[in-house]
Design a protein around this nucleic acid. Structure first.
Lengths: 261, 261
DNA sequence: TAGTGGTCTAGACCACATG
DNA sequence: ATGTGGTCTAGACCACTAT
């Protein structure tokens, strides 16, 4: 059995059989992760065709010299990424593509950089101020307590794109303006050993005030995209509250959702 | 060892020990899922305090009469939900709350219903039309081929909230206008056995045209929140393209992100 | 009936964090 | 040195799908 080629159905044959995976048991990277990476690469490069594939887990584990749970763990991670779909009694298939990245807690800086837009940042304000009520509530601080206020103007190709307001608990981070202009806030947080865990966001829209319009090189009343975000580290401590406005004519949020099942 | 109460540290003791979990091996619901549900309920109700908890997996598995992998699977599912955090060498902790729901592929109808807004829907158009270029591309159809165009106006408290445009491949679904007004498109898809798998979304903003303003009871030029979405089923086949506009004064997107680690 | 993924077990050893 | 989660094994039985 397991003869390929005796059935020329619409469903593609598991091209997987011709693939060989290089698993390094001496590597510090887990076997299931090595396998997942190589499977993902095979899918990415089209070696594993979308539609139908990936003959059964038991054979695969034998062929790779791994246990079935380990192989399952690798496959599961790709299922979680939306690249594969399992069907009981049928098999595991490569999804018909269309899969991009899930929405990430990325900074605008990273977004723009990834899009090759060569962002630049100008720090407009960087000072300690009393916390406004909403900010204090979001950060779990006393109203009127000190917070660091950061205000930045982001440009691409010399054109303003966004006005970024951020509030951070005092003493959390050394906010050097020069570094902020070079690298983005979220990257600085990561570098400082603060691991972001979750964030709560609200995305809306409104018309630009005269002042906002002037700063963003828009007309008064132009549509702006707005975003408020509170970010938490992995202990659940709030580490940042941001209130941002984007020129709707030059920026939009673009992302992929996966349905919980 | 495992004596509780001999250390009164800031870190909370595992209140878990006093909890008993009811596991039914005869139930069709998997043991790991039963455990996960009961852990989640305990967290939800504050029985498991945020901050620090959940003594080691081995003891827990012995106490519950489960294998460690099964217990791990339960815990992992809550880690994926953002309710728990694992730290090697330390233990598993309940996150400091602030965790809401991740962004779901929910319909506006569901959103509003969940918010107790009592939405109503008016089907404005429901007909077969030639596919515009962008729509044909999104749905993987020939340009000018037939698609079903659905246009709906959604209200809460009698006030317009959104203008929803949807394109669907022909023959996918029986789109009865009366049922659409009663239940929402996504629910109808689910009922028809179409399981959504992923979606690609773009969220932006722009100013209302005169016509849009009239239909949404806004002034011309008012800020609108826009969303385009292509949804795919689990074979990767596009099943819906939507282009929606929302009154920014009455609606915003609100969601929780978890950072991939 | 045969083949697939879904669940579960009872161990083992390792890497990392803490005292 | 100890305790934790992280990884891995080699089986087993079940539920579902297809033929």
């Amino acid at each position: 059995m397991a003869k390929t080629g005796d059935r020329a159905r619409a469903a593609a044959e598991p091209a997987l059989s011709t693939l060989d995976f290089a698993l390094d048991r001496g590597s510090p990277v887990p076997l299931y992760h090595q396998l997942a990476q190589q499977l993902e690469a095979a899918i990415e490069h089209g070696v594993l065709a979308p539609g139908n594939l990936l003959g059964n887990e038991v054979d695969l584990s034998v062929r790779l010299g791994l246990s079935r749970p380990t192989v399952r763990q690798a496959i599961q991670s790709l299922v979680d990424k939306g690249l594969l779909v399992r069907r009981r009694g049928v098999g595991t298939q490569v999804v018909h593509s269309h899969v991009r990245r899930p929405l990430e807690l990325s900074s605008l800086y990273d977004d723009l950089e990834a899009a090759g837009q060569g962002p630049t940042t100008q720090v407009v304000r960087n000072e300690t101020v009393p916390a406004p009520a909403g900010v204090a509530a979001a950060l779990g601080l006393a109203e009127g307590g000190e917070v660091v206020l950061l205000e930045r103007l982001r440009r691409t190709h010399g054109q303003p794109v966004a006005l970024l307001g951020n509030y951070l608990p005092p003493g959390l981070l050394d906010l050097d303006s020069a570094r902020l202009e070079a690298t983005g806030l979220y990257r600085m947080l990561r570098t400082a050993g603060i691991t972001l865990h979750s964030a709560r966001q609200t995305v809306g829209a409104r018309s630009a005030t005269a002042q906002e319009a002037a700063r963003l090189d828009e007309k008064e009343g132009a549509a702006l995209l707005t975003m408020q975000r509170t970010a938490y580290d992995d202990t659940g401590r709030p580490v940042e509250y941001g209130t941002h406005i984007y020129r709707a004519s030059r920026y939009s949020f673009d992302f992929q959702l996966l349905v919980r099942s």
